[in-house]
Amino acid sequence: MSAILVQIPGLFTTVQDLGREGFGPIGVSASGAADPVSLRIGNRLVGNPQGAAGLEMTLVGGAFAFEQAAVIAVTGADFGPSLDDIPVAMWTSIEIHKGQTVTLGPSRSGARAYLCIQGGIAVEPFLGSASTHVLSGLGGFEGRALRKGDRLEFGAVNSLFRKKSLSPKALETLQPRKLIRVTDGPQSDWSPNSSWKTLCESTFRVAEQSNRMGIRLEGPAIPLDLSREMITEGVSLGAIQVPPSGQPIILFVEQQTTGGYPKIANVISADLHSLGQLRPREAIRFERIEMSEARSLLIHQEELMASKELFQE
């Protein structure tokens, strides 16, 4: 089998696909790419099924030597990708010769870059997915972030493949947002109007401790009716939970599956990929929208992902 050798692992690089869904009854969250839109596009650029496993890099990328020829694509945030020290374009299929090295550096834009390889990264699936679940050390490559010297195999090449690029218009439309749209959460009615006002009229900063489990925000404390008792319940991806400190936490891909803090809002599905590109100290704002609007935004996004105009050859 073809393989890549990790020469520089980067700050935090893991194997990710679109995650494992349906294991709530045994307490396992879906995990999966933090920016699934970028992973899906990267896979399609190399002729993979959109859910194939790729590498997710965080803030600082790594260097990967190819033992055999391959076709790759680099998507997500701009980590200044290069091939044997010559800069290469993102969002396009690139042919790699045997012995060449792909290097990504520090981020110039968002938080996460994806390296997709034709054939997909081959790891033993855990509960049907290649995604790394770091907290429990399960899935992905040995359940952990990559280290120098790791050797990762990838699947067979696709001979029917034709090179392509993401259309500039689609890239523009799918840009990660800093104004995150939210719908009401299960405890929305716990919060006096002032909490919505605080949430939607303030600027929040992404805290350093944010990770794939949760995005911690710093800003004005969100007032809550603390006299009400909360019973631990299932929590959804993108839930904005408010602990007693009033500093909100957005539950993210490697989230806990249940929680006991009130959730006043929930990030809409169409904006979840934007969360994966938030960097520490970055400023974000929230906008409250109706459930029906959230739904049409997602339908619109998926129509674009399925359209012929997404790629150009």
Partner: peptide, 22 residues
């Protein structure tokens, strides 16, 4: 329906929003 998350007195049901609504 994609996932079920039971708790003490509730069940959170996750569904495919492109196929179903609340």
């Amino acid at each position: 329906i994609r996932n079920l998350q039971p708790a003490y007195c509730s069940l959170l049901i996750k569904f495919d929003p492109l196929r179903l609504n609340h």
